[in-house]
């Protein structure tokens, strides 16, 4: 918690990865600092803290959001899912396996946010074209891969979910 703002704090209760969490937070703390520092959920990353790079993408009430553009107090009462919860529940296990098989990650820093964005696309569009995949993840910056392998992995996962084989 940010001590300088002790006089500007608020109590919040939210559900993070299915667990009820109550904390007193400085009102200026954004959601990802809260998740990372308070809850030690370090899988969500900070890259720019201005909503451009996508490294902090998490799911709030079922919607992929930029965790750096949302204050922790705004998440009061919300259901937040992070990469840790999505991994442990197995909800995106096929996508993760496809990323692994296709080496659709290198340093891994963008990967949690990229997976949340990709999962959102696949939930809305079971048969995205490569261009649609590229458009949907175009808010997630990856410096390592050049994106080609990521597009392949998402495309493979979509095909597998449609029962068209080739799943990793």
């Amino acid at each position: 918690m940010d001590g300088a703002s002790m006089d500007r704090v608020r109590d919040v209760t939210l559900w993070v990865n299915g667990e009820r969490v109550s904390r007193r937070v400085a009102v200026r703390t954004h959601l990802v600092d809260f998740l990372r520092v308070e809850l030690e959920l370090t899988g969500s990353h900070l890259g720019c803290e201005q909503g451009v790079c996508g490294a902090c993408t998490v799911r709030v009430d079922g919607v992929a959001v930029r965790g750096c553009l949302m204050l922790a107090v705004q998440a009061d009462g919300a259901r937040v899912e992070t990469i840790e919860g999505l991994s442990d529940s197995g909800a995106i296990a096929d996508l993760q396996a496809a990323f692994h098989a296709r080496n659709a990650l290198q340093c891994g820093y963008c990967t949690p946010g990229m997976l949340v964005s990709a999962a959102e696309l696949l939930a809305a569009n079971p048969a995205p074209t490569r261009d649609e995949i590229r458009a949907h993840i175009s808010g997630n910056y990856c410096r390592c891969t050049g994106y080609h392998a990521i597009v392949d992995a998402i495309e493979t996962t979509a095909a597998a979910r449609r029962g068209e084989g080739g799943a990793a």
Partner: peptide, 15 residues
């Protein structure tokens, strides 16, 4: 596949 990539995919990297 890279053995050490799996934990990065689960947000278990340690930066």
């Amino acid at each position: 596949p890279r053995p050490n990539a799996r934990r990065l995919l689960q947000g278990r990297g340690i930066y």
